[in-house]
Simulated assay, not measured.
Amino acid sequence: MIVIDHQIVKWEELAKKVSNKEETNIIKLMTSFNEKYEYLTLEQLKFELLFRRNTMRAARELNKSGAKFTTFTYAFCNKKYWNRLSNGGFLIRPDVDPSTAILDILKNGKLYAFECSTAVAIVLYIAFLYSIGSERFNVLFSGLYLMDWQFDEDLPLYQKYGDDFIPGDVLHFNNPDFDPKQPHWRAENVIYFGDDEYFGHGIGIRGASTIINFLNKKRKPAPKNSAYLMRIITRPHYLTMSGTM
């Protein structure tokens, strides 16, 4: 359910206040869950809806960018905008605007390779850029660093357990019997689109069964456990971030 200023609001009422079909579908889904999604103002909800929509947009664009999947050891980036560090992370060059550098990953994807957790970070940073504009983004992320789950404090994340999957969420497939020779397939971090569609870097936009079948092919000999979709949801702290606009 959606609660604004301590009042439960029906999706029919909210649908009149958004014009985008994706956002309308998200509202309808959120109001169908028993989970409470609480906001002080309608504007805070609208920011979350915008960010979720932009997350899916960024994931689709990254999927088409030509950026490759690899491990931290073999990660590479466009040296015009980023310095590759010894741990496989990318640190923005001091003479470059963060908005230009992050969008270059979409523009020149073939010059980049990284694993799935960095891909999630890239998607969320691009979604934030789309949501607040380049001028504000450049101020917030002047020292932008892309590496695994290390996020700037201005893009706070939290995790929760549950089944209330909402388009734009970051979800996780676990592969408990992964092949030790391919430890990078111990899990796959994905962006959820709804209707059994997930974007996983290195796998593409696929249904859950396809992702599970893929991961099951990356298991050790004589495996006992199938890969599966976890009940862990990772989300940006939208309420905090809405104050950056």
Results as ranks from 00 to 15, higher is better:
residue 1 M to P: 03
residue 2 I to W: 04
residue 4 I to F: 01
residue 8 I to Y: 14
residue 13 E to D: 15
residue 14 L to K: 05
residue 14 L to T: 07
residue 16 K to R: 10
residue 18 V to Y: 00
residue 19 S to M: 10
residue 22 E to F: 13
residue 23 E to C: 07
residue 28 K to M: 08
residue 29 L to T: 05
residue 31 T to M: 05
residue 31 T to V: 12
residue 32 S to A: 09
residue 33 F to L: 01
residue 34 N to S: 14
residue 34 N to E: 14
residue 36 K to A: 13
residue 37 Y to S: 08
residue 38 E to L: 06
residue 40 L to Y: 07
residue 43 E to H: 10
residue 45 L to F: 04
residue 45 L to Y: 02
residue 45 L to C: 09
residue 50 L to A: 04
residue 50 L to R: 10
residue 52 R to D: 00
residue 52 R to L: 02
residue 53 R to Q: 12
residue 54 N to R: 03
residue 57 R to H: 14
residue 58 A to N: 02
residue 61 E to A: 12
residue 62 L to R: 07
residue 62 L to P: 09
residue 62 L to N: 05
residue 65 S to A: 07
residue 67 A to Q: 01
residue 68 K to W: 13
residue 70 T to A: 04
residue 72 F to W: 11
residue 72 F to Y: 14
residue 73 T to R: 14
residue 74 Y to I: 04
residue 76 F to Y: 15
residue 79 K to F: 11
residue 81 Y to H: 11
residue 82 W to T: 02
residue 84 R to W: 06
residue 86 S to P: 02
residue 88 G to C: 07
residue 90 F to G: 01
residue 91 L to S: 12
residue 92 I to P: 13
residue 92 I to K: 04
residue 97 D to Y: 13
residue 97 D to M: 13
residue 98 P to K: 03
residue 99 S to N: 04
residue 102 I to R: 02
residue 110 K to M: 03
residue 111 L to D: 12
residue 114 F to L: 00
residue 115 E to D: 14
residue 119 A to W: 11
residue 119 A to G: 11
residue 122 I to E: 04
residue 124 L to N: 13
residue 128 F to T: 15
residue 128 F to C: 14
residue 129 L to C: 10
residue 130 Y to K: 07
residue 132 I to R: 05
residue 134 S to F: 01
residue 135 E to H: 06
residue 137 F to L: 08
residue 138 N to Q: 08
residue 139 V to Q: 15
residue 141 F to G: 06
residue 141 F to Q: 06
residue 143 G to P: 09
residue 144 L to A: 00
residue 147 M to N: 12
residue 151 F to G: 04
residue 158 Y to L: 00
residue 159 Q to K: 14
residue 159 Q to F: 13
residue 166 I to Q: 01
residue 171 L to V: 15
residue 171 L to W: 05
residue 178 F to K: 08
residue 178 F to V: 07
residue 180 P to K: 14
residue 186 R to C: 07
residue 186 R to T: 08
residue 188 E to I: 12
residue 195 D to N: 15
residue 196 D to N: 13
residue 197 E to Q: 15
residue 198 Y to C: 08
residue 199 F to R: 02
residue 200 G to D: 02
residue 206 R to E: 10
residue 209 S to I: 12
residue 210 T to E: 15
residue 214 F to N: 10
residue 215 L to K: 03
residue 215 L to W: 00
residue 216 N to S: 06
residue 216 N to V: 07
residue 217 K to D: 07
residue 217 K to N: 13
residue 217 K to Y: 01
residue 218 K to D: 00
residue 220 K to G: 08
residue 222 A to I: 10
residue 223 P to R: 06
residue 223 P to L: 06
residue 233 I to Q: 10
residue 234 T to M: 07
residue 238 Y to C: 05
residue 243 G to A: 14
residue 243 G to V: 10
residue 244 T to L: 15
